[in-house]
Design a protein around this nucleic acid. Structure first.
Lengths: 146, 146
DNA sequence: GCCAGAATCATACTTTTGGGTGATGCAAAA
DNA sequence: TTTTGCATCACCCAAAAGTATGATTCTGGC
């Protein structure tokens, strides 16, 4: 990160230098304004492109899960099972979700209303810190709940 | 895609408009040259950044690492893999679904539109005879695709 | 060159999920 | 007895997922 900042700074310095030079020549030889602006524009487009490229190189923010997946083989982790404690009903719902059943189907299987299943699954997602049922299933398998 | 081109065009139009406006004011009120150049520079840096970002989006066909990661300990069963033949893209999408990503996230990861992901996933469901993504994942694991 | 399959995307529509809020009843623990 | 956790359900709203259809582009193989 330090080096990144350094390079940005260096780029800025070079940039200002060039700007000044161009400006100087502008004053001296009365280059047409359009040409000047054009040069600046082209230069900054290039700079911007480079910045954009750089920005999209480093950051890999999304999949922290992938790393975890790569590390986990399949061992159940009792301490984590402890941590993400689900109630019995929640666990049932989670298990059925993992089998690919819809909320409606689960509701019928457990003889409760659709809304109840929604509540349970929402609670499961909360406890497992998941946004979707597929993610919940994935996390549960990682943890060893399933 | 059509809309993308539209937005490019719109951006260009707006850009030219602003440029002209700024230039006009420059001529009228004698804004300092540095200010003018600065505005142009900032604008083109932003434009360049955007272009750079866009450019670096396309040429990344996802280096199959994600797919590899998705492959768990279960050994693939060639005869079944044969039967439920998925295209490469479909397989990628399936793998990402299994990791708990939303269609939108997958679209961004693979740099395609949401609709494309929907098409792919629909095809996967068809081929795996699944009604939901969770079911597809479940079946794929049974079969040994994942 | 032509063709099939693959990948892409759009539009329009329906269904499923998920979030938020609030309410009730019940049972065990404090 | 009061509190607390659990299970149940409702209503509303928004977002995500899924279906259907049609179209374009590209590529590999014949």
């Amino acid at each position: 990160m330090k080096s990144t900042i350094f390079w940005y700074g260096l780029a800025m310095a070079i940039l200002l230098g060039i700007l000044k030079t161009v400006e100087y020549q502008f004053l001296l030889r009365d280059i047409r304004l359009e040409v000047y602006v054009g040069i600046v524009a082209v230069f900054f487009v290039l700079l911007g492109t480079w910045i954009g490229w750089k920005l999209t190189q480093k950051p890999e923010p999304l999949p922290s899960t992938i790393v975890e997946i790569a590390q986990t083989s399949a061992e159940p982790k009792p301490e984590l099972v402890e941590k993400y404690r689900l109630s019995k009903r929640e666990y049932e719902v989670l298990a059925l979700i993992a089998q690919g059943y819809s909320n409606q189907e689960i509701a019928e299987m457990l003889f409760v209303s659709l809304n109840t299943i929604k509540t349970h699954s929402s609670n499961v997602f909360l406890k497992l810190d998941a946004k979707r049922r597929t993610q919940a299933v994935q996390k549960a398998k990682e943890i060893g709940l399933l």
